[in-house]
Design a protein around this nucleic acid. Structure first.
Length: 839
RNA sequence: GCGAAAGUGGCGGAACUGGCAGACGCGCAGGACUUAGGAUCCUGUGGGGCAACCCGUCCGGGUUCGACUCCCGGCUUUCGCACCA
């Protein structure tokens, strides 16, 4: 079974000689070599007449090698791509490597190997495994994000955003490990501690580069309606963008001098000069009459200016305490804390004085970084007000309540509440009141209606080594100067000491020879930007590059791009449902607006594949449940492994990996092999077998485009069971089309059998088998017979049989007729399916 | 807490638009051919009952001639997001 040596010797009984069996390793080696020699998978980019771009998310080439999760995704894409090729399209299925980033860098640090050595070795290993998997990938057009020929154009994309005013610098908080002296990504912080050394992580404010993706929020949201994407993905994007309508309300901060009886004379220097104003965002302007205090985030720029002398120590102590927390802990800590600033504002609706507090439950990055607190109708404000004894007012009543019903908890329902204790607005339903109150405040110049987004600008700075240097130069005379395009790429220098230090700036800053450059504008001494960019920028445009790989003069060629993009089909994991896909869409829109692209959405169709788990859990090294594809390639062959992975469950849902089921798939392929090998051309093919075959051709042709691979495989198995029933030897016409059907799943085997059947060209150039509806038609159908809704039996009739005919057949069947004890009240007849006699 | 998806035999999973629940595969049991079988083939396999039949798609209601599928309420699981004002 596992080798190609004939298993029966010539001297075996009856002179029967078992011909060569199915040896996957030999077959797969042969076709790998043949495909390579013929350049069978190379796409004619320029000459293609019916281009079809079948893209899969490119992998991060980890040192552990190809993960089954990767293989599952790639196989699913490959089947789709090969199917389209069998339909006669010119399919382009490229692959590349997303190899920059903190993950690679940390791994390199751990091993003590430089990433510039490590990454090529990993890529070589990945490439070997991917070739072994039999993917129809065009290896002449791969992309490696860490190669200067690629990141030159990543830097170019940055410059395009800078030109358009969409790249800017501002201070932002990062996670900082005081022990490792390094900036950490959110995923490197575990329970407030550094994942490597366990030290408590702090926040640090650093100047960082951002992309103004928020300018595109509305368009990113609106375009979703036009895309053929998995619904879960669209929903995730919508909630990530997080559009909410509300009002921005202004609160004047009272000058402490005006505060009757105050002794706070010394604070005048800070506060006395002119009226300070706090702007808040709220989705509930209707509750303005219930606002009893105002809270600003500890990072709010006005906090110092509005803090009174007496409260200074408390406020700065509080702010220091907040900044000592890492970004995650800050957001998960539920216990409310905060301090009074010593200032007051006026409620524009009631004219009442309201204290201004600072508290970390208000986040600087959302809205305006300040809120009006309405403890009666917001859970968080209620909790805070209760803890600090601040007033709680009811301004909305639910059904059965009145303005004096006590509030035991915040009443947050905005569905069928009506306003109360709100003067002229009393009795108005909440929904209606939102607009009316906003208009009223607007007329008093105290507010305006606004739309706010949860989405915030994209921080692309990384104070790290392993990424493309951000192509900017700082000159004392000229300011921030973009690196001229002719000077790209800004090469990442090969430095041995790439480990981050306690400076909070990239290791590149330690290399004067790299860091010091003449200003491109005036020639005077200047300094390079030492931050590198986020990996999401690398992956945000790679799909534009593939068809133009090899062009060194442009990022992507205009005519080629017009021909091949947008991507026809994109398949990838839902873990990238939000960031990668959103950033790619954003960059596409920007490049469209800049005149480089004719389309503004990159992926016409996107489907998220599921995840492969094992023993009910994600595969991970720590759990020891990782599957190494090499073992399965060697033991079962790539064709069996591919087909098995697709048979596990619905492609878009993933499945539970277990060794148990793989033998069934292997035996299916082996049996197909035997039937094809032994097929004959004597006489005519069997009518019933041909019917099943054509039903299968239809079914597989319908299921593959739906990515319903598991049911396609089941259908082919059924068909083969019919072909081989009772040890039948197949007629050639019965199995030949099956070789074409199975080709997307088991490409090596299909090629071998196709050749065995006498063809000289590749099975992938043979087209999809023709479906003959006449052959697929059933002569008879089995109709379920119910009496009073209970199934009592079946009758076999012609597909054209009408109700009367079927009823007659039913009455002729004593086993069913005995249940029909009276005169039928009603008979329900569904042609070809069911007859229900209701008594 | 919010959002999304999902609960079907011993197991992975099928089931069109509301129309025979359990396709296909694994596993299990029996058999054929064999020196042999991890090959191939045949038969059986949701539960109960000798049988006629009865019960069965997370739980409880409902709509319908008919519900895995639709509606209402609840439970559980997985995955996102998480003090979003």
């Amino acid at each position: 079974m596992t080798d190609s040596v004939p298993e029966n010797t010539p001297g075996s009984p009856e002179g029967f000689v078992e011909p060569a069996g199915y040896d996957p390793n030999a077959v797969e080696r042969k076709w790998r070599e043949r495909w390579a020699a013929r350049a069978a998978n190379r796409t004619d980019i320029a000459g293609a007449r019916r281009p079809f771009y079948a893209l899969m998310m490119f992998p991060y080439p980890s040192a552990e090698g190809l993960h089954v999760g990767n293989l599952f995704a790639f196989t699913g894409n490959d089947i789709y791509a090969r199917f389209q090729r069998l339909q006669g399209l010119d399919v382009f299925q490229p692959i590349g490597f997303d190899a920059f980033g903190i993950h690679s860098e940390n791994h390199a640090l751990k091993l003590g190997v430089h990433p510039m050595e490590l990454i090529p070795a990993n890529i070589a290993n990945f490439t070997r495994q991917l070739e072994r998997a039999g993917l129809m990938v065009d290896w002449s057009r791969t992309v490696d994000t860490t190669h200067p020929s690629y990141y030159k154009w990543t830097q170019w994309v940055f410059l395009k955003l800078l030109e358009r005013g969409l790249a800017f610098k501002k201070k932002a908080a990062v996670n900082w490990c005081p022990n490792d002296k390094t900036v950490l990504a959110n995923e490197q912080v575990e329970n407030g501690r550094c994942e490597r050394c366990g030290a408590l992580v702090e926040q640090r404010l650093l100047e960082q580069w951002f992309f103004r993706i928020t300018d595109y929020a509305e368009r990113l949201l609106a375009n979703l309606d036009t895309l053929d994407w998995s619904n879960t993905t669209k929903t995730a994007q919508r909630s990530w963008i997080g559009r909410s309508e509300g009002a921005e309300i202004r609160f004047r901060v009272l000058n402490p001098l005006e505060d009757a009886g105050s002794a706070a004379v010394h604070v005048t220097a800070e506060v006395g000069s002119g009226a300070q104003e706090i702007r808040v965002f709220t989705t509930r302007p209707d509750t303005i009459f219930g606002a009893t205090y105002v809270v600003v985030a500890p990072e709010h720029p006005l906090l110092d200016a509005i803090t009174s002398f007496e409260q200074r120590a408390a406020v700065s102590e509080y702010r220091a305490r907040t900044s000592r927390q890492d970004l995650i802990a800050r957001k998960t800590n539920k216990e409310k804390t905060g301090v009074f600033t010593g200032s007051y504002t006026v409620n524009p609706a009631t004219g009442e004085m309201m204290p201004v507090w600072t508290a970390d439950y208000v986040l600087m990055e959302y809205g305006t970084g300040a809120i009006m607190a309405v403890p009666g109708h917001d859970e968080r404000d209620f909790e805070f007000a209760t803890k600090f004894a601040l007033p709680i007012e009811r301004v909305v009543v639910g059904p059965g309540e009145n303005s004096r019903t006590p509030l035991r908890e915040a009443f947050v329902d905005d569905g069928d509440g009506r306003l109360c204790n709100s003067e002229q607005f009393n009795g108005i339903p909440v929904g209606e009141a939102k607009g009316l109150v906003t208009d009223w405040l607007e007329s008093k110049h105290a507010a305006k209606g606004v739309v706010n987004y949860r989405l915030h600008d994209w921080c692309i700075s990384r104070q790290r080594y392993w990424g493309p240097p951000i192509p900017v130069i700082y000159c004392d005379a000229c300011g921030t100067v973009p690196v001229p395009e002719k000077d790209l790429p800004v090469l990442l220098p090969n430095i041995p000491d790439f480990k981050p230090d306690d400076s909070g700036v990239s290791p590149l800053a330690r290399h004067e020879e790299w860091y010091r450059v003449p200003c491109p504008a005036c020639g005077k001494p200047a300094r390079r930007e030492t931050d590198v960019s986020d990996t999401f920028l690398d992956s945000g445009w790679y799909f534009l590059r593939y068809p133009s790989v090899g062009r060194d003069d442009v990022a992507f060629d205009a005519a080629t791009t017009k021909k091949w993009l947008p991507v026809n089909s994109y398949i990838g994991g839902n873990e990238h449902a939000v960031l990668h896909l959103l950033y790619s869409r954003f960059l596409t829109m920007v490049l469209h607006d800049a005149g480089y692209l004719e389309f503004d959405e990159p992926f016409t169709k996107f489907r998220a594949h599921g995840m492969i788990i094992r023993d009910g859990a994600k595969m991970s090294k720590s759990k020891g449940n990782v599957v190494n594809p090499d073992d399965y390639f060697d033991g079962w062959g790539a064709d069996t492994f591919r087909t098995y992975l697709m048979f596990l469950g619905p492609f878009e849902e993933g499945g539970d990996f277990r060794d148990a089921g793989i033998s069934g798939v292997k035996s299916f392929l082996t049996r197909l092999w035997i039937s094809a090998r032994d097929s004959h051309t004597n006489g005519e093919p069997d009518r019933d077998v041909m019917r099943k075959l054509h039903q299968t051709i239809r079914k597989v042709g319908e299921d593959i485009p739906k990515l319903s691979y598991n049911t396609s495989i089941a259908a082919m198995m059924e068909c083969l069971n019919v072909v081989r029933r009772g040890e039948r030897v197949a007629h050639r016409a019965e199995v030949e089309p099956m070789v074409q059907l199975v080709a997307p799943f088991a490409p090596h085997l299909a090629e071998e059998l196709w050749e065995m059947l006498g063809h000289t060209r590749s099975v992938f150039d043979s087209g999809w088998p023709a479906f003959d509806a006449a052959l697929a038609t059933q002569d008879t159908v089995t109709i379920a017979v119910q009496v009073g809704g209970k199934t009592r039996g079946t009758v076999v009739v012609s597909p054209e049989a009408g109700e009367a005919e079927v009823l007659a057949a039913v009455m002729a069947d004593a086993g069913i007729a005995k249940f029909i004890t009276g005169t039928p009240k009603k008979v329900i007849f569904v042609p070809k399916r069911l007859l229900n006699v209701v008594l």
